Simulated scan of single mutants.
Amino acid sequence: MKLGISSYSLHRALGEGGTTIVDLVQWVADNGGEHIEIVPIGFSLDEDPRLAERIRRKAEEVGIDISNYAIGATFLQPDKDSYRNEIDRVKRQVDIAHTLGTSHMRHDIGSRPIPESTIQNFNRDLPLFVEACREVADYASQYNMTTSVENHGYYVQASDRLQALVSAVDRPNFRTLLDVGNFMCADEDSVTAVKKNLPIASMIHLKDFHLRPGNRDYGEGFFPTLGGNLLRGTIVGQGDIDQHEVIRLIKQSGYQGYISIEYEGHGPCYYGSKVGMDNARRMWNEA
């Protein structure tokens, strides 16, 4: 197991005092991270192609891995040409992931508003998702790269939907990026959902939330689940997920891959990320 941090956790620091994504690579290494996951929020690897090489060289210099490259995408397009263009765009992102020196890339596949995130719509859209994911995975295989879809965005968030997608794509290098917290957005118990989807995980995010019933107002900072409950991001190990049990299950499974801290709390991002990583390492050692 290698523990590190997603740059998404630190994106609010970008631009402050001239901080760049290359600086964040250094910060992760200085604070005990063994890898950094690159999420292009606050910077663009399309607009500055040489930036990917600078990130890779910096990671090599400080002795940490680039574990994953995670991008947004949607294969829910208005026509066939747009659908084709989006597949081709995601394949170009695979090339960027290769330049970064990572063997993992996560891409989205599409989302719908909560009222439209039904199983009926998902079943209708599944063939479009499967065709696109299969083509991207086949393209990535030239680099010995594993592509994945994360359980997020409401529409493709429940554990069973991820299992259906991975099974239908049927490629050895297509898996799921398992986010232990995001199952709560679909009103699933994280321990149960992690247990179900660990066998198809290529990478893991540790995240934590405060969970509250949706029948009252708790003030700013909460967002709704599919079922109308409320969530607020917090430091890993300080929320309502049984992180000790989640981590015990991951360790017991024999998982040897990357684990990223994703901090979505409202406090200082450096503090929340560092404490979350320290908590995760302690719970792993205790498991």
Rank of each mutant, 00 (worst) to 15 (best):
A137L: 02
V136Q: 01
Y258V: 02
L230A: 08
E262D: 05
S7T: 15
C269K: 04
A52E: 01
Q93H: 14
L177N: 13
R282Y: 13
H152E: 12
D46L: 09
R54L: 08
D170Q: 08
H210W: 12
V25W: 11
S159M: 02
Q243H: 11
E220K: 13
E47K: 13
I5S: 09
E53T: 11
V180M: 13
P113I: 12
P40E: 05
T192F: 04
Y218V: 07
D278Y: 04
F43C: 07
I55D: 02
H104G: 03
N229Q: 15
G110D: 05
S82A: 15
T192L: 08
H98R: 14
I21N: 04
Y69G: 02
T146W: 03
F43V: 06
D189T: 07
G254H: 09
R50G: 02
G153A: 07
E116R: 13
G18S: 13
S148V: 05
L3K: 03
G237T: 08
V194G: 07
H205T: 09
L126P: 08
D65Y: 07
G227C: 12
N121R: 13
E47F: 01
I38F: 07
D30N: 15
I64P: 00
D189E: 10
L211C: 10
P199H: 05
N173W: 09
S82L: 04
R248K: 15
P268R: 06
S7A: 11
L230V: 04
H244C: 07
T176Q: 12
L231C: 08
M105Y: 10
G42Q: 12
P49M: 02
S260I: 03
F75G: 00
R112E: 14
Q243M: 15
P224G: 13
D48P: 02
E16N: 15
S159L: 01
A70M: 07
A132M: 10
F222K: 06
I96N: 03
I71H: 02
L177F: 12
H210E: 10
G4V: 00
R281A: 14
N215K: 11
Q93M: 10
A29D: 07
V236K: 05
D88N: 13
G32T: 04
V25K: 06
T99S: 10
E47R: 11
V28L: 11
V169P: 02
M105H: 09
L177W: 02
G17T: 14
S260Q: 04
A158S: 13
A137E: 00
W27G: 04
R171H: 15
K80I: 03
Q238E: 15
R232L: 10
S111N: 12
V22K: 03
T74A: 13
V275H: 06
H210Y: 13
P199E: 03
A70R: 01
D160V: 03
V22N: 05
I259A: 06
R84V: 01
D170W: 05
A13F: 11
G110V: 09
K195F: 06
S141L: 04
Q142G: 01
Y139P: 00
S260Y: 07
A186M: 06
L51I: 04
A29R: 08
G32M: 09
E286A: 15
I247E: 00
L128Q: 08
L230M: 15
L162Y: 00
Y139W: 06
A168F: 01
L206W: 01
C185S: 14
H35D: 00
V275C: 08
